[in-house]
Nucleic acid binder design. Sequence first.
DNA 1: TTTGAAACACACGGATA
DNA 2: TATCCGTGTGTTTCAAA
Lengths: 155, 155
Amino acid sequence: MDIIRTIDEIDHKILTILQEKARIPNAEVARQVGMAPSAVLERIRKLEERGIIEGYEVRLNPLPFKQGLAAFVLVEIDRSRGNGSLEQRLAEVSGVQEVHQIAGEDGYLLKVRAADPKALGQLLRDQLLTIPGVKGSRTQVVLNTVKETRRIELE
Amino acid sequence: MDIIRTIDEIDHKILTILQEKARIPNAEVARQVGMAPSAVLERIRKLEERGIIEGYEVRLNPLPFKQGLAAFVLVEIDRSRGNGSLEQRLAEVSGVQEVHQIAGEDGYLLKVRAADPKALGQLLRDQLLTIPGVKGSRTQVVLNTVKETRRIELE
DNA sequence: TTTGAAACACACGGATA
DNA sequence: TATCCGTGTGTTTCAAA
């Protein structure tokens, strides 16, 4: 299944508009690209089918939900053991937003959210370090987030 | 301006639905929470006004756009110099999706996307390390992303 | 691409508490 | 004062022509 195929200029334009503001009405997109709404709708559908558009997300302020503290946690694992469902277990820990396997270390880099340092500490101690196969961790706490987007440059 | 105030059970339900699939029609949300569409619309508006909903994003597959490689870059900065616009300049580098000031090091943690290791190397050498005030960097390349979401648990 | 019917968005007003 | 609902008007969706 080749996802790539041709992303032509019009698709490009549509995606640029959607990256700007995902909840814009289809007719408005059509106006901006100078096409009929139905044609644009069909293109968006196909972009979804082809896996180029993976979904639409609401961006919530983490503060009201007591998730204001972010941290990056490097989890060192014990390769000698059968890893098995380790990745899955890391991903399931509450507050874990991202799990990346990284090069150069036997481990994973996690992006985690918690209420405050104390809650983060508990999370690490009680939920992460208790997972079989986890040897240890190193945590970098975020003091301030300057930029946080998932926007990509459409080359 | 207190953002928090009361997030009641219905708000909670609405946000859960929107986190699942942000592009669902308002009328459908109304059906699921068992309220009139106009009332639901008003609630969503207020959640936006209160800054609880920050926006809506499309999630794109980075591969078709040659941004398949992700990396986390720890940028060490020289505190002795006037920092000035350093944060801004880091945020503006192409491929940089996130910029976090972190505790325990004089530096920033960046999430970066590039086409491949070569492109990442060029980015670091030509765009990041040339910024005044940047002393050095340590890069962790992502081999595989197990989980990547910005969803938060609504307590 | 156009078109038309059904579904939807959204502002307004009234009811409720 | 705040939140609810119903209605009316204009818009959007979506599939068939």
